[in-house]
Each structure stands twice: as structure tokens, then as C-alpha cells.
Amino acid sequence: MATPIGAKRVVSREQVVRGASRFFLEHGTVDMDRLATALAISRATLYRVVRSRDGLLGDVLWLLAERLLVRARQQRRRGGDDGVLEVTQRFTDQIRGSAPFRAFLRGEPETAARVLLNATGGVHRRAVSAQREILREVHGPGGPWSPSALDQLAYLYVRIVESMIYAELLGGAPLDPALAERAARAVLRPSG
């Protein structure tokens, strides 16, 4: 049913994020003017719904990453630390193989760093939470860590993974995956 002339179209944040995700996969970015047109809403409505482009990008990148992470978790065949590392390897292989994601990192490095790595960007915080759940899932409810140690472990583990995925974005050379895996494995060992 068409929206009557002069009437405002109501759109939810979820609809915008889904539309922006499709746009990102096609273009490797989110252009707010073109997205508003694609969603048949005004730019003012788009900003009213999402507040900021960075916030929208954080939601889009997390939605896409979460899909890959769910798939990696479903494909896991090992348990314990090897299972945690298997999920990480599957996930990072998919992320690094994503042409739209690589285009975003190359085309908008400052925005990418802000959205992906800062606490306010939304992606890092969600990644730590997801990693905490992976650790619980693989090691069982008790696991070898206290709740506060588990939070810190998830944070450190994610920072190692981010260092591997975003090495060039962080101003360094690409990390050797074997070295990154040894560092991640060392973090997973409970202290005695």
C-alpha cells in the first residue's frame, strides 16, 4: 500500500539496520543520502531513527559479524581451548575474506577504527560479550575462571583477535596468524 502524499513513512531502527546491511554488502560503506533514498524516507527521518552514521555502522557491522560468528560456532568440532580457537579461526577467515569489509577498512580507516575498536562504537563491547559466551559454551558453566576473570579474559582475547584482523588499520604490518594463535592460546590458559 502506497504512503499518501504528504504523509510521513514510519520506519523502525531494525528496518533501517537491515536495509543498511544490504547497502553495506553491496557498496562496502553506508552512504546516508543513498540509503535514505533506497528506504524511501527522508534523510531527516533516517537520522531521527538512527541518530548517527557511526551508530548505524556499528549496528550494521555487528549484525554482519554476528551472523558469521553464529556460523563459526555452529561449525565448531572441537572442545576446550581448541574449540575456542577453532571458532576464532573460522570467524577471522570469513571476516578477512569479506570484500565489502575490506573495502570499508581501506576507504574509511578513521571511521572503521572509531566504530570497530572504541567502546562507544558498539562493536568491540558486543564482541567481548560474545566471546564471554563462547568461553562459557566451550568450557561449561563452571569453567576454569571466576566471573570477573572471565570478563577480563574475554576482553584480552578479543583485543588479540582485533590486533590480528585490524593490524594494518592500527598502523602495523599484518600479524603472523600462528603468532596470534600462540598469544590467544596463552591468554586462555588459567593461571595456577
Rank of each mutant, 00 (worst) to 15 (best):
85 L>C: 05
63 L>M: 12
89 Q>F: 05
86 E>K: 07
71 R>D: 00
59 D>G: 14
58 G>R: 11
75 Q>N: 07
59 D>H: 06
41 I>C: 08
54 D>T: 14
37 T>W: 03
48 R>Q: 15
86 E>R: 04
39 L>S: 07
36 A>E: 04
36 A>K: 05
53 R>N: 13
64 L>Q: 13
53 R>G: 05
80 G>P: 08
88 T>M: 14
72 A>E: 02
77 R>E: 14
52 S>V: 09
66 E>N: 15
77 R>K: 11
83 G>Q: 08
55 G>P: 13
36 A>C: 05
84 V>K: 03
43 R>V: 06
57 L>A: 13
60 V>P: 02
83 G>R: 06
72 A>G: 11
50 V>W: 02
65 A>V: 00
46 L>W: 02
77 R>P: 04
46 L>K: 05
47 Y>K: 01
68 L>I: 00
39 L>V: 05
89 Q>A: 14
78 R>D: 03
72 A>C: 10
44 A>S: 15
49 V>T: 15
69 L>V: 06
42 S>Q: 10
63 L>N: 12
68 L>V: 04
44 A>Y: 08
37 T>I: 07
87 V>W: 00
81 D>Q: 09
83 G>A: 06
61 L>R: 07
40 A>N: 15
86 E>N: 07
70 V>G: 10
78 R>I: 00
61 L>A: 10
39 L>H: 03
88 T>V: 15
87 V>T: 15
57 L>T: 09
74 Q>W: 00
55 G>K: 04
76 R>L: 02
89 Q>H: 14
55 G>A: 11
70 V>C: 07
71 R>V: 01
89 Q>N: 12
38 A>T: 06
79 G>N: 12
44 A>P: 09
57 L>F: 09
61 L>K: 05
67 R>F: 01
88 T>C: 13
66 E>V: 01
73 R>A: 12
65 A>D: 14
83 G>T: 03
72 A>S: 14
88 T>H: 13
62 W>P: 03
50 V>I: 14
46 L>A: 12
80 G>F: 11
84 V>P: 00
53 R>I: 09
49 V>D: 01
46 L>S: 06
88 T>S: 15
46 L>Y: 04
79 G>A: 10
45 T>C: 02
89 Q>D: 15
42 S>K: 06
56 L>D: 03
71 R>H: 00
71 R>L: 00
83 G>P: 08
86 E>I: 03
41 I>P: 00
43 R>D: 07
73 R>F: 00
47 Y>D: 01
83 G>E: 06
41 I>H: 02
